[in-house]
Nucleic acid binder design. Structure first.
Lengths: 218, 218
DNA sequence: TATTTTTGTTCTACTTTAGTTCTTTTTTGG
DNA sequence: CCAAAAAAGAACTAAAGTAGAACAAAAATA
């Protein structure tokens, strides 16, 4: 029957003519099929014409017509589609993106947004996670920059030295390193321009522990 | 099938004959399609007749007949399919993880590994990408730490100020900010303990541009 | 019917887009 | 490792698109 490339091309031609009413050009086809040169498209089309899946007017632009479609998919195409589906089901996980973390609002107050952030499944295995955009430079010293997205594992306790989302007085959420000292808690920024805050433990609530970080350039 | 102009004209002819009961003149068509001369319309009509979408009585005014129209998918179906595609856009894709970038080996020498790294599709749309583990602290100043994974877009040229994977003398690959100064290239680390390297452009090959960064905190 | 107006046809010239052909390079499978 | 197939790339040729003008045939109308 057809080779995977032939199949892919035929389906593409069929799809675009049915959707737009006009036939794609060789250049458009080469992009769709993933080739870098039109000459490959030419060969594929010759093959499809020979096998009577296409009809063409030679030397005319965009003058192809689909005669028939194959009843069988090449197994390589089936495999590829299955792989994509698996990727869809397994690898992708969406976690809520709660907005910016800075001074001000506690996380849960803005938890009703439905922004989502997609992360690899491995990054959020075993636990509940959410994402936050970092605002400000108070953690610059350990490579957490303004605009980064941090992925936080929900937790209400943390170990000394963990980077946590800490809610102070039920109204202000920040990302800081935490350290317990007896009845008090230290919230330690990682930037010399900021002061360590020392608070009674009762005023600080841990809302999660930093699990990973994603940054986009440009 | 048809070229975009042919399609547009055919649809116009079909629409106006259905609405007004008579066929538009060449002048009306040229205005509708956006041409300044009737001769183009003539050519388009000849093509449509050849492809058996129109029938005409030669030398008669307004004597065209639409034989058939390209059969399109209902737009509802197209919308449905687009939705499915969007779902795939949210899927994860795997890109090759080429190992550590530091001093020593060029990237391509270790490209035969089959480690993979999963990232959201949005992060790697339009281009070829690969992932590298960062080794060393030479870029600490802009928040790129030892052990981070960087996602690199393949490219062989870069703009001043881009963070790039640079291959020096075909044997040593590093992640640095790049700056061109006439015949020379500066490779700028972001850590005061490291020196800027100034090299003739011929010794430096760009292998990719930093696109995003992922960090895991155990 | 004669005349005017509308409309279609033809031609030339030029630019852009698209298809074809061929050679070289890369990839693949035995 | 080699041969065959696939792909890339460049060069080339043809068609499509654009415009303008001139003209011929048909339609309108006086």
């Amino acid at each position: 029957m057809l080779t995977p490339k032939q199949y892919k091309l035929l389906m593409f031609i069929n799809k675009t003519t049915k959707e737009t009413g006009c036939c794609p050009s060789f250049d458009e086809m080469k992009d769709a099929v993933g080739l870098k040169s039109k000459s490959g498209i030419y060969a594929l089309i010759e093959a499809l014409v020979e096998r009577n899946f296409l009809r063409k007017l030679p030397h005319k632009a965009r003058a192809l017509e689909v005669v028939r479609l194959p009843k069988l998919k090449p197994s390589a195409v089936i495999a590829e589609e299955k792989k994509k589906e698996d990727a869809l089901l397994n690898a992708m996980v969406e976690i809520p993106l709660y907005g910016y973390i800075a001074a001000g609002t506690p996380i849960e107050a803005i938890a009703n947004e439905n922004d989502k952030f997609s992360v690899p499944y491995e990054m959020v295995r075993g636990g509940q996670y959410y994402a936050l955009k970092v605002e400000g430079d108070s953690m610059e010293g350990i490579g957490i920059l303004n605009g980064d997205t941090v992925i936080i594992k929900k937790a209400d306790t943390a170990q000394n030295g963990d980077i946590v989302v800490a809610l102070v007085d039920n109204c202000e959420a920040t990302l800081k390193q935490i350290k317990k000292e007896g009845p008090e808690v230290l919230l330690i920024p990682k930037n010399d321009s900021y002061e360590v805050r020392r608070l009674p433990a009762s005023r600080v609530k841990v809302q999660g522990i930093l699990s990973s970080l994603v940054r986009s350039y440009h």
